[in-house]
Every structure is written in C-alpha cells, then in structure tokens.
Write a protein that binds this DNA or RNA. Structure first.
Lengths: 215, 215
DNA sequence: ACTTGTATTAAACAATTGTTTGAAATTATA
DNA sequence: TATAATTTCAAACAATTGTTTAATACAAGT
C-alpha cells in the first residue's frame, strides 16, 4: 500500500489538527476532516489521543513548542537596548507573528480563538503562552513610564499596546473589507508595526511626564 | 393551557436567539436550546424563520434595531463640540456598550463573534453596523490630525483607537484572569475609557505635529 | 517459525441536530 | 355556527459526529 507520507502518524495528525482547529475552531472541526487530510483512519484520533478534546489539548501544546522554536525573541530580551528599540522589536515581532498567513498564523489563530471563545484549555494557555509575553512587555515599558509606579496605569497601557496589535488578528475580516491596503504585503505590515510603536511611545512618554489624576 | 409568556412567539424566539447565539456562537447553538428557553415547540423556528440560519440573520437585524434605539449617540454627533470631547464621548459610549454584561453586551458579542469568525452574514453587518461607526470616528479624529491628509495614517489611527477598545471585548477572558480590577465596576471601566481617550489624543496630536515619513 | 504486542482498518453504535410531517388545537372569517 | 386558515405539537427522519469494536495486518522478540 502506498503511504503518502513517511511522517509518523501521530505527528501527521498533530500538524493537521493545528491547521484544522485554527481554521474552524474546536466545535466546527470534525475528526473525520482531520483524518482525511492526514490520510489516517478515523479511529486513530481516539487510539492515540483518547478523544477529540485530548487531541485539541496536545495540538495546542505542540503548537506552542513549535512557535517558541521558530520565533525566538533573543534581541527583544537584550536588556542593554533602549526601551524604545525593544518596544519596536516586540511590536514588529508580535504583529508579524499574528499576520503570518502560512504556518505561524495558525498558531496565533489557535490562541486568539481560545481567548475569544475559551474552552477549558484556556488556563493552561494563559500560563504557558500569554502571561510570559505580557510580563516581557511590561518589563519593556516600565522604564518608559518613568516615575509612574501605579500598577493600574501600567496595566492599562499594556492593554492599549496589545489591543492595537491584536486588532489586526481578531478584526482581520474588517480590515480586509475596509482597508485592505494596510495589510497588503510585508512592507505594509511593517509600517503598521511602526505606527503602533510610534503611537504608543508618544503616549507612554507623555503620560510619564504628566500623569493624570489617580484612578 | 398556561402560557408562561404573553409576548408573541416570534418575538420570544428572537430575544432568546440573540441571547443564545451571543453566548455560544452560531454552530454551538442548538435550535432546541433556543426553543426550550423560549418555551416554544422545536418546529417553530423552521415554521417562522425557514431555518436556523434564517433565524440567525433576523436575530442580528433585530439586535441592531434594538441597540440603535437603546444607545443613541446624539451628543457624539453634535459637531459643535470640541473634537477631544467628542472622542471622549465616543470611546466612553463604545466601551460601555462593549462591557455591558446585561442586554447590550449580547449585541456587541454577536458582532464581535461575526468579526472574529465570519459567517456569510458579515457583509451585511459591516455595511449596517460597523462602517457607519467607523465613519463617525474618522470624522471625529480628522481635525485632531490637523494638516495630515494621508488617508493611510488616518486609517491606522482609527485601528489604534478601535483596537484599544475592542481589546476589552475579545480578550475579556485574559483581563478577567490577569487584571480583573481594571473592569471590576462601572467606575473602573470609565477610567479605562478615560485612559484610552488620553492615550489616543496625546498620540494623535503629536502625530499631527510631527508626521513621520510617508508610508 | 511462532508468539506477542502494536497499528490499522472497515463497520457499526449511540447520541445529537436541523428539519419535516401530519394531525390536533386555535384563531380568524364568512 | 360552520368553514377556512393559521398555529402548535409530538413524533419521526435523515444526516452528521465522536467513539467503540472486533477483525486483520504488521513488527519485534524469542
């Protein structure tokens, strides 16, 4: 019998699962669709992963593992760089990861799906993938906020930056409809990243110098 | 026979449908769940709305109708107000609409669901509910951007503002987990709206005075 | 070669779901 | 009131889906 793929069955299922779950979400995904694409029998999912939910959990973990390998953030972690530069790198890296239409986009699609419509895998995702990123961003913007020590203000600034980036993922359909030129190609996306960086640095430094009344 | 509700069957179904579709999304919603909550027979959905999808479409339209009645934007439309004030009103109105946990939250949940995971009802939603809002916001920030006429820059600023607001809707689960105090009560939300307003006005005016190189 | 443990498969199962049906109940109309 | 139209209902239908089963194929170890 002809094997269309020499990759082990488990790996094939996992890869395809990431693809399909990202595309359709957990509920809209059928194990038969996964198995067809992976060229394996329907029973394989239950044989190797106990259940559809088991596969989903493992697919998420697998996606994180891959993403961390493929998208290192070494330069961002370099604390000797100016905070403005680090923020610029962070946003550019984040935005490109979000907009990647090929492989990495699936990973972020899986995450944003979980965020917008949580299953019971959410807690794990927050701890594993999200909290560290947010902690990093917080560390980056801390010096930009200067003397401001109010945690609440810092957290709202965090959300301002993340929201500007995530807009391009979760509201992609809107942008495609109304302003497709903003994300037409890699350069356009880079310009968006620069915009978000500029927008945020201006606001952060200004807030640092004239804090409004405490909340 | 005891009628638990004097509201006409059609209206009961529509109201409940908004509720359930917002909570579970189109696919995860069963017509039986809707009919149980509305205390009507399962066949009623097909009798009155042809199909589940027909009900979904009409529920969306109905939700828009309601929302427009309940959340008027009169003051925002007042062009004699200072643009800063109008932007402040817009953001406050928008954020409260998004965070409303009772009735209006369902309406925005329905929309953000469609945005994040479009069905073929999306086109209609964009034209009916989204584009007008974006046009209004664009009109508001135009004077803040002063001499800048580059549409691209204006559009990116639009997305920056919207992204900051929408963050609280689509990433609600994250905020609940990590920074619940930011959205603990109405006052906290109001402070978030003020933050977004401040953050955005600072950036907009600064960008207006020192535009970066054209994209 | 034989045995044992693992993989793979087609088929069936049980539950769910959107939809249809045809009769009964209700309301409107003449 | 009698007739017609509409609404409501329980039941059934057909398709889909996650999961299980039991037989078969394969591989490894002795």
């Amino acid at each position: 019998m002809l094997k269309t793929n020499i990759e082990p069955v488990i790996d094939r299922i996992l890869h395809v699962a990431i693809e399909v779950f990202a595309e359709y979400g957990f509920r809209d995904t059928t194990v038969r669709e996964i198995c067809n694409r992976a060229n394996v029998n329907v029973a394989s999912v239950n044989y190797y992963f106990r259940s559809k939910e088991g596969l989903y959990t493992q697919a998420l973990a697998f996606a994180f593992h891959e993403a961390n390998q493929l998208y290192p953030q070494d330069s961002i972690l370099n604390k000797t760089l100016a905070p403005e530069k680090r923020l610029s790198l962070f946003i550019d890296n984040f935005l490109h990861k979000l907009m990647d239409d090929s492989h990495l986009g699936l990973h972020s699609k899986l995450i944003t799906r979980e965020i917008a419509d949580p299953t019971n895998a959410l807690n794990g995702i927050i701890a594993t993938a999200i909290a560290p990123q947010i902690a990093l961003l917080k560390e980056i913007i801390q010096p930009l906020l200067g003397t401001i020590t109010d945690e609440t203000i810092a957290h709202r600034c965090l959300l301002s930056i993340l929201g500007q980036c995530l807009m391009f993922k979760h509201s992609r359909s809107i942008i495609d409809h109304l302003y497709p030129e903003l994300i037409a190609d890699d350069l356009a996306i880079k310009n968006c990243a620069e915009h978000i960086t500029q927008f945020s640095i201006i606001a952060l430094t200004q807030i640092a110098h004239q804090p409004k009344k405490t909340s």
